[in-house]
Design a protein around this nucleic acid. Structure first.
Length: 869
DNA sequence: TTGTTAACTTAGAACTTCCCTA
DNA sequence: TAGGGAAGTTCTAAGTTAACAA
């Protein structure tokens, strides 16, 4: 694509200023060289002098119909005065690994960045800097802490007020002609007459194994049988694909969603305190207090923003539902939620203490209740629904420095929820009072229900489960698209490498951004709003996030998705280094590094190479191709399963590091590593003893290499401690056995053994300890019972294997303590790579894919050994 | 042209179950 | 056989992206 394609008259403007809140990047005089059109290798070149960037006039927040709808709704909720309102309810990582740069054959350390978790006071831009930044994200609905009751028994007027604009909102976009919306009454009527007319278009395919046709989809009400369910796996990947990408289903039947149970008040003796006095809270305010009390010992309750937001929202609830004993709550510090916390803890303990049978019974009841929601009928086939449980009310657990963390998340009710279901299908009845907000029949989307959440105004959806055909198809398409990139990537790389020197600033910036996305697997990086945590991706990087280190190193340090810190010191193409120097020139730390690139422009450019190509595809492509290369290069031949698994995990880990997938190290990691080290030494001790026995038997063993070397990490002090502990364990064991035997004897009406029996055993253990102590340091040993040397040789060999396997497990655990392997396994690694690898190396796939993953990836399981990404 | 919305994927935390060791 | 810790699963926040609207 010609670089001129993006050269509009506006191109002179730094994009940052186009998107900010009106305070454009002004005030730095005329020296802001980055605002020019043409780029030059030298930041000092005279070409740099360009007109001042145009300033965008301050804008008030535009109000779109959907937003206005939400505001209207919020206002309506706010103005409600009904009394029956129910309140609704790090440690631093040092990862360093040398792995092949995606798309290059040379090994490099580019991706071996250090991944470090954000600390609470971690890398943040100043508030001032933040304010300078663009604020493009949609505004949240106005805060409202009261709401209208939309109970089924309410007047139709309120229903109408809500549903009319909703219709507008829901069908305003692409689907005007496809979506038909009905009122509950209309739908119920229609359901009665039309339910028989099902357009079952599912096509069962022949089972690959036996060639026999699989049975037609089960009719509703057929007796459930697990074996039968097995047979019913619909192999959509073998069926003829007739997916135009628009219509996702023909018929859809489901039972809606499960609402959480209503709030159960605390026992009358459990009360929070204010200034030491018990507060008699009405249900509504008690519930919200309870949300906080339950989190008292989590990190959330230590967070000032969280506490502030919670308290503000709670005060609003308290305004309408004040303490019955007239206590005036005004100061957060004077609140003591501990009695509530302790009550919850006690309840938890009670639940934990239930017998297995009781727990089973509860589970059975829960399963029975949920059964009808777990699955739906999609094109006549039974499919699992994913999140059919509506999110319960609570406090918003925003990550990182989210400005709204701690805010009250309302209880979602039927009149908040839009149901998407097949036309003519019976409409589910909510399991709590109220009517659905709306019913739609939109075949172009995959969701079964949605609602708008109150804290950020985000849409929430109920989708099918990961193992469903819809999700599976989309997953497979994702990987196929990533594979298709193989055919284009050389050209794309060639082009952006050339564009790194482009005279057009916008092109040069875009090329540099593409370099990062390709080489470092950065996310696209959309702009974010003031009301969100300050995190960035490639296009939204600010100058403060990248530091130059001569001759060619860049140090990236920023908070990415989920406020996870991305830290990487990486050697880059000298031209990239020059470019970053140029882009940073004359800018402030808080300015956008790429002022002429945004995700939209970047993705449009990518799409010109390949249909559907976006920044995200690069991440999938680079993850999978890296994984394939790592497996191909790193899998040992003629190795044990454990060794192969280690190679697999290593490859997986390289991808996780590339993608910066982190987890907090298990709290007990150090302790458990310590235990493992002890166990390893103990195995080595056993080996040493056996070697010494062999030496004692025949000096020839000393000359044999496999026996000659000492176990390196066994020092004298440790050996002494270990032998003492062996002795103590022996004595303990004898004592236990003695007590147990006596108990049995007494039960059988016999005399217990005399103490002397135990004493003898203790003395024997002491004697053995003394004997072993004498052997210490002599290089020779004897067994309690003689064994032929061949048998001892055999045991040493077995111990060698055990030690080797154990060491591998330890290495694996240590290397992976702060790396989350799951995310890449679930989202980025083409499962066919794993299936082919397992098959080629005789590794049972169950060792790698959990049950859920096997269910998620059935489409990938039939590839042959030679399959490559 | 630019910002917004809706729909979907990706992500770590939180919770639950399983398995191994003592 | 309990209980501690790891693995597996669920939950929901936080991204990306295409289409749409002003």
């Amino acid at each position: 694509m010609s670089s001129d394609a993006y050269m509009s008259s506006d191109d002179d403007r730094p994009l940052g200023s186009l998107q900010n809140d009106g305070k454009a990047n002004t005030g730095r005089g005329t020296a802001n060289g980055y605002a020019k059109e043409e780029a030059s290798d030298s930041p000092m070149s005279e070409d740099e002098d360009m007109p001042l960037s145009q300033v965008t006039a301050p804008k008030s927040e535009p109000v779109t119909p959907a937003k206005s709808l939400r505001r209207k709704r919020a206002a309506a909720l706010d103005s409600s005065s009904e009394d029956d309102d129910t309140p609704l309810a790090s440690s631093p990582v040092k990862q360093s690994a040398a792995i092949s740069m995606p798309g290059t054959s040379k090994a490099s350390t580019v991706n071996g960045h250090k991944a470090v978790k954000a600390e609470s006071d971690g890398k943040r831009s100043s508030t001032a800097a933040k304010k300078k930044r663009a604020s493009t994200k949609k505004g949240p609905p106005q805060k409202k802490l009261k709401r209208e009751d939309h109970d089924a028994s309410e007047s139709p007027a309120s229903e109408g007020e809500e549903s009319t604009p909703v219709k507008k909102e829901k069908v305003s976009r692409k689907r005007k002609s496809k979506v038909k919306e009905e009122t509950d009454a209309e739908v119920e009527e229609a359901g009665k007459s039309k339910s028989a007319k099902k357009r079952a278009v599912s096509k069962k395919v022949k089972d690959g194994a036996d060639g026999s046709a699989t049975p037609q989809p089960k009719k509703k009400g057929k007796v459930k049988d697990e074996a039968e369910d097995e047979e019913e796996v619909y192999k959509w990947w073998e069926a003829q694909q007739n997916n135009d990408g628009e219509v996702k289903w023909q018929t859809l039947e489901h039972n809606g969603v499960i609402f959480p149970p209503p709030y159960e008040p605390l026992p009358s003796n459990v009360k929070m305190r204010y200034k030491g006095k018990e507060v008699d809270l009405p249900l509504e305010s008690e519930e919200v207090a309870g949300f906080y009390a339950a989190m008292l010992e989590t990190e959330h309750a230590q967070d000032a923003t969280f506490n502030k937001n919670f308290f503000e929202d709670w005060l609003k609830v308290l305004q309408d539902h004040p303490p019955r004993n007239k206590i005036k709550i005004t100061n957060f510090e004077d609140c003591d939620f501990r009695p509530m916390f302790e009550h919850f803890e006690a309840e938890k303990a009670k639940k934990k203490a239930l017998s297995t049978a009781e727990k089973k019974e509860l589970k059975k009841q829960k399963d029975a209740f949920e059964e009808k929601y777990v699955t739906c009928l999609l094109d006549g086939r039974k499919e699992k629904v994913g999140n059919f449980r509506v999110e319960p009310p609570g406090l918003f657990r925003g990550r990182g420095d989210h400005p709204k963390k701690g805010a009250l998340k309302f209880r979602v009710r039927p009149d908040d929820i839009t149901i998407n279901i097949g036309e003519g299908t019976p409409i589910p009845v909510p399991n709590m009072p109220g009517h659905w907000k709306a019913i739609v029949h939109d075949q172009t989307v995959t969701w079964l229900a949605n609602w708008v959440e109150n804290v950020n105004g985000n849409y929430k959806y109920v989708f099918l489960a990961a193992g469903s055909s819809l999700k599976g198809q989309s997953d497979m398409q994702k990987f196929e698209k990533a594979r298709e990139l193989k055919n284009h990537v050389d050209r794309i790389r060639k082009d952006y490498s050339a564009d790194l020197r482009s005279k057009v600033m916008a092109d040069r910036q875009r090329a540099t951004a593409m370099y990062f996305i390709d080489k470092l697997a950065l996310r696209a990086g959309n702009e974010k709003g003031e009301d969100e945590a300050d995190t960035v991706g490639c296009c939204s990087l600010r100058c403060e996030h990248v530091t130059l280190e001569a001759p060619d190193f860049l140090i990236f340090d920023f908070l990415g998705k989920d406020s996870i810190r991305y830290y990487n010191r990486v050697s880059v193409d000298p031209q990239v280094f020059k470019n970053i120097k140029l882009f940073k020139d004359n800018k402030e730390d808080s300015d956008n590094l790429f002022d002429r690139v945004n995700t939209s422009l970047l993705n449009k450019h990518l799409a010109s190479y390949m249909k559907g190509l976006t920044a995200k595809v690069f991440r999938t492509y680079n993850a999978s191709i890296t994984f394939q290369q790592q497996l191909d290069e790193g899998t040992p031949m003629n190795a044990t399963i454990q060794e192969k698994l280690n190679a697999y995990n290593h490859a997986n880990r390289m991808v996780a590091i590339l993608c910066n997938h982190q987890r907090s190290a298990p709290k007990t990691h150090e302790q458990s590593m310590g235990k493992m080290r002890d166990r390893l030494r103990s195995l080595k001790y056993d080996r040493m003893k056996l070697r010494h026995v062999l030496f004692n038997t025949d000096p020839k063993y000393k000359k044999q290499k496999q026996y000659a070397d000492d176990e390196s990490d066994l020092d004298d002090d440790w050996i002494e401690d270990h032998e003492k502990s062996l002795k103590n364990k022996e004595i303990e064991k004898a004592e236990k056995k003695f007590a147990k035997d006596n108990e049995k004897l007494v039960q059988e009406g016999n005399e217990p053994q005399p103490d002397s029996v135990l004493q003898e055993k203790i003395e024997a253990a002491e004697a053995e300890y003394k004997r072993v102590a004498k052997e210490r340091g002599t290089g020779k040993a004897k067994l309690k019972r003689d064994r032929p040397p061949e048998k001892i040789e055999e045991t040493v060999q077995k111990l060698d294997e055990k030690i080797k396997t154990f060491k591998l497990q330890m290495d694996d655990r240590e290397a992976g303590k702060e790396v989350a392997l799951g995310t890449s396994k679930i989202n980025y690694l083409d499962p066919r790579i794993t299936a082919a690898w397992c098959s080629a190396h005789n590794v049972p796939i169950e060792k790698i894919f959990s049950k859920t993953l096997l269910v998620k990836f059935p489409w990938a399981m039939e590839v042959d050994d030679a399959w490559k990404f």
